[in-house]
Every structure is written in structure tokens, then in C-alpha cells.
Simulated scan of single mutants.
Amino acid sequence: MGKIDPRVVKTRKKLRQAFLDLLKTRKLSEMNIKDLTNQAGVTRGTFYLHYRDKDTFVETIMEEIIEDFYDSVINYVEFEGNPEKMIPQIVLDRVFEYIGESPEFFITLLKENDAEEYRMLFSDKLYDYILEHVNYGNSIPVRKMPKELINNFLVFALLGIADAWVVEGKIYANHYMATNVAKLFRSELFIEVGLENFFVSDAE
């Protein structure tokens, strides 16, 4: 596959950043192409060269950021020292670093009704990593628990803690948050379903 024109990459980065900047003052439903192009410093014609309409743009950007988030925070480690069996962990230090750089996106994901389908995407991807994490061990306990129960707890707990952290001015360092949230996610329930080492801190 050929390389993407650097001008295309640059324009899409500008529009993505404009989207994130506008989320500071607007809901998804209030977003419009004029504001996006003005914020990005590109013309409407340029916008339509890359995206069919506003809805396509929002869908693409939301999905891209969720994908980028997981690419950034997931780390694969050997299962019981076997390099042929690699399982994912979520490094919480990276979670708070990523959220700290784009807090408006995650606040939108947590609180807006219009973001429900993307919250579901975020949740479903998390569950896929959970199943992959327990794949080589005993996956039965986690599968016995209703997906909605464990996913809702994890998504709203993680995003809710991050939201409060941002609102309070990020007064605690990423590492401090990661270390303590990792401890919170080591309850009896997590041990029972084999997820006590799914959320980790860089120090571990």
C-alpha cells in the first residue's frame, strides 16, 4: 500500500485537533463544519475532500482516538514466562497521561448521550482485551460474569476517576493515580475472575 500524502496527514491532524479544541466548549450535537474548518484553518472544500459530512468526520475521529488510546496504553507480557503466549495489560500510567492530554474527549465519552455508541465501542474493545488477558488461564470465571456488569463497572469507574482528576486540576501525578487505581482494581472480585494483573502501574 502506498504512502499517504503528507499534506493529507497534516490536514487530518489539524481537523482532529480542531475537534478536540471545540469539545472544550461544545457538545457533539453542536459541532458544525464551519466551526471545525475555522478552528483548523482549512477551507470547507478541503474538509469535503477528506470527509463526506460532519457525521462521517465525527465517527471517524471518535473511532480513531479510541483506537489510538488502546494502542498507547496496552502492553503485552509473557504468560507465565512463555514468550509464545503473550497477554495484554493496561498500563495505568499511560492511561492517565493520555487522558491528561485530551481530557475533553474522555469527558464527552463519559457524559454525553450522543457519545453512547462510542462509549459502547470503548467498552467492547476493553472486553476484547479482558478475554485476551485470561485466554491462557481459566477464562470461565470472567465469562460467567455478565459482560455488562464488569464492563460498566470498569468503564465508568476508570473514566469517572479520570474525570474527577481532571476537574480537580490533575493535582496528583500520573504515577500516583496509576499506583492507587491499580490497587482499587485488585478487589476480591478481580482476583476471582483472573484480572488482578490486568491493570498495572509502570512501577510494577
Rank of each mutant, 00 (worst) to 15 (best):
V9N: 02
N82A: 07
F57R: 08
P146A: 11
E192H: 06
I74N: 02
K144M: 14
L131E: 06
R12H: 09
S123H: 05
M145N: 02
E97Q: 12
N197G: 04
I74G: 04
N38Y: 07
G41E: 08
D124Y: 07
F79N: 08
D114I: 00
P146N: 09
Y98H: 13
G2D: 11
E30Y: 03
P88A: 10
L131P: 01
W165K: 01
I87C: 01
R16T: 15
F185N: 08
F79Q: 05
Y76M: 09
N135S: 15
Y98C: 02
S139V: 12
K183M: 11
I150G: 05
D202R: 14
L149H: 09
G137I: 06
D93G: 03
F199W: 12
T46V: 15
E80V: 03
L121V: 11
L184I: 14
M86W: 05
L154S: 08
I161Q: 02
E59T: 13
M177E: 03
E84L: 13
S123R: 13
K34T: 15
F69N: 01
F96G: 00
N82I: 05
M62D: 03
L28G: 01
V9K: 14
Y76A: 03
I191M: 10
I161A: 11
Y136G: 07
R7M: 11
S139T: 06
T179H: 12
R12M: 10
R94S: 13
Q89K: 15
D71T: 10
Y98T: 11
L36N: 01
K10D: 13
R44S: 13
N174Y: 14
D21P: 00
L23C: 05
E64H: 12
N38D: 14
A162K: 04
R52L: 12
Y136S: 03
Q39C: 14
G194Y: 13
E63D: 10
